[in-house]
Design a protein around this nucleic acid. Structure first.
Lengths: 341, 341
DNA sequence: GCCAAAACTTATCGCGCGTAAAACTTTTAT
DNA sequence: ATAAAAGTTTTACGCGCGATAAGTTTTGGC
């Protein structure tokens, strides 16, 4: 450590024996300067630990190194997992990710996009609220800022969409459930926040028809993102009303399933595939907690890793010039057999 | 909307009929200008929707309006809940919160603090990793940036510490468990990441001794933040080894309890307070999922709301000049009786 | 209506860096 | 060896705003 403190790039350039514009170039892209120059700068960097003023940098740069990551509901560990992967990929690529959660509130989502604009981000990875999103706000945002949508797509907005092949999810697990017992009923919210729910229902219906079974869809009342509570309360109502025509229930997602398992427990129904069980329950997503429900939840795993990796890749390709048309990438689910079905 | 686009404060001042320095003053604090002036500016604001360049603002201001919020592990919905409250309080106070998660990695925590420095935040709300934190890094950060610690305190670092009265948590639930059945054994990790765990153990021991029972502490192997899996795997080992001297297990926190419930399920142990149950399990925290375990988990609720509210309040008081000495504020827990104990 | 205080205007500087142009130096290719 | 290419230095300007000083207008209390 040098004793003198470096106050700005001018001073740092002086102690490293390089001119300021070249130093500036170095910070923009270390590879863009000659190796001998780079070495000089890095030696000075080690001795004085100077760091460019981030505000002054971003003020004049057309494009900052900021990347916004927006998820609809951070209380869902699924999104935390995705966010963690995305953040890491961004850092590795030399960008500064910032995480935002809409917390299920459309107003907040709008505010986030609004304040994100003023950060002049190089790009944004956005998982929109879905049905509740202010479409025109999202659309105008996508027009202004390079944005890749993930998890839940809105029309063909943004540079690309990366998500899961939801119909395949449903088909995969319907297949499994039919092979191993009675065909499943489908439990979902009447007005799901997330458009993926519709794809999953359609996948369920298609799979059932293909296998020659009549679909049985049970829809629950309730709004918002409090899925577990809705699954418990309204799923319980459905149980009491005997709305399930078979002993097998496929939930639209794991969080509903977790709540529904509680409803079953409250009614002393044994859940599982053993002979002494009266009901089978399955979910979709492989929520981090599904491993720990009682019984552990059989489900279809989203490929968190592939989704986050590909979303980041798409964004950076677009930022760095590749002018591709809008592309939708969907990843397959993987069956996770546990004890609940 | 006016047709002409406003490029900077100069132009905006022109269309609003006010001088630039006064407009600047307005954006710094709307109350600091005359009502008639404020009205003129706000009318122009409605017509032209100009927003000051955030980078130029922060470059010259001694203090930005940025507030950093750092949590150790976002995959734990407890921290999401706290973060959500804190974010809202900051926004209401006119600040810009930014959320970071250390994701259980000490290196990442250090990086976050490092990059936070360069954002010149007005203040930071930090829930450190705890035992794994780089103490000297946290200390030097606290010396440079107004920081309020929460959840897990490190010595007397920072402006203040806001958390839960952990000994009281343990006493509260030990009391309850003893009143309603056999005295509890205490299940925890051998090397807990979080210093709160030690306080809880001490509270447990004190409460047991006060009630004339011999403490029984079962410690589990395992490192990291994967509490549920540790509770399941190592809790299961403890069950198999019959390490619990009574039929009641108090877990150091809810996430361990959630995993431990799975371990019980795997061994076909009925958990609860009914006569046909063989084991009672309780947790501490009132994790958002505890309502949905099977059986629902009896626990001690952290006062999320009070903690987040008071942490933000402490920070803003300190920022706005009150030069108080370091103050520790602990909130009481509330017993949440469910079916597991 | 007077007068001091408060609020505003005008003018000017500085922040730390990006960026561009022109002259210069080093490296690479022929 | 020579020319071309690539990298570097010097010089200079601009970004959008914060901050300040000196002068002008408005306000509110009497």
């Amino acid at each position: 450590m040098g004793a003198t403190k470096i106050r700005n790039m001018e001073e740092f350039a002086a102690v490293s024996g390089i001119s300021r514009p070249t130093v500036s170039k170095y910070f923009h892209d270390p590879e863009s300067v000659r190796a001998s120059t780079r070495q000089k700068i890095e030696e000075a960097l080690a001795r004085y630990d100077y760091r460019p003023n981030i505000f002054a940098m971003n003020q004049n740069r057309k494009l900052t190194k900021n990347v916004g990551v927006v998820v609809p509901y951070l209380a869902d560990p699924f999104f935390v997992e995705i966010a963690r992967n995305i953040e890491q990929s961004c850092i590795d690529a030399g960008y500064r990710p910032t995480l935002y959660s809409s917390h299920g509130q459309p107003e907040l989502e709008k505010d986030i996009l609004d304040s994100l604009r003023s950060l002049k981000p190089a790009g944004v990875l956005l998982a929109p609220l879905g049905r509740a999103s202010d479409k025109s706000a999202v659309e105008s945002f996508c027009n202004d800022v390079p944005t890749v949508l993930f998890d839940s797509g809105i029309q063909k907005l943004g540079l690309a969409f990366v998500g899961s092949d939801n119909p395949q999810f449903a088909m995969l697990i319907v297949d499994y459930l039919c092979r191993t017992g009675e065909p499943p009923c489908f439990l979902e919210m009447r007005t799901p926040s997330n458009p993926n729910a519709n794809k999953r229902r359609e996948g369920y219906v298609a799979a059932m028809e293909r296998l020659g079974h009549e679909p049985c869809i049970v829809q629950m009342a309730g709004e918002g993102w409090d899925f577990e509570e809705i699954g418990r309360r309204e799923g319980g109502v459905a149980l009491d009303r005997k709305q399930f025509k078979t002993n097998t229930v496929l939930c639209s997602n794991d969080r509903l399933a977790i709540g529904f398992l509680t409803a079953c427990y409250e009614r002393r129904l044994r859940v599982g595939r053993d002979t002494d069980c009266t009901i089978r329950v399955a979910g979709q997503d492989d929520h981090p907690f599904s491993r720990f429900t009682c019984p552990p939840l059989t489900t279809v795993a989203q490929d968190y890793d592939a989704i986050s990796r590909h979303a980041v890749k798409s964004l950076f390709e677009a930022i760095e010039g590749d002018n591709k048309p809008h592309e939708t990438t969907l990843f397959q689910g993987r069956l996770v057999m546990r004890d609940s079905a």
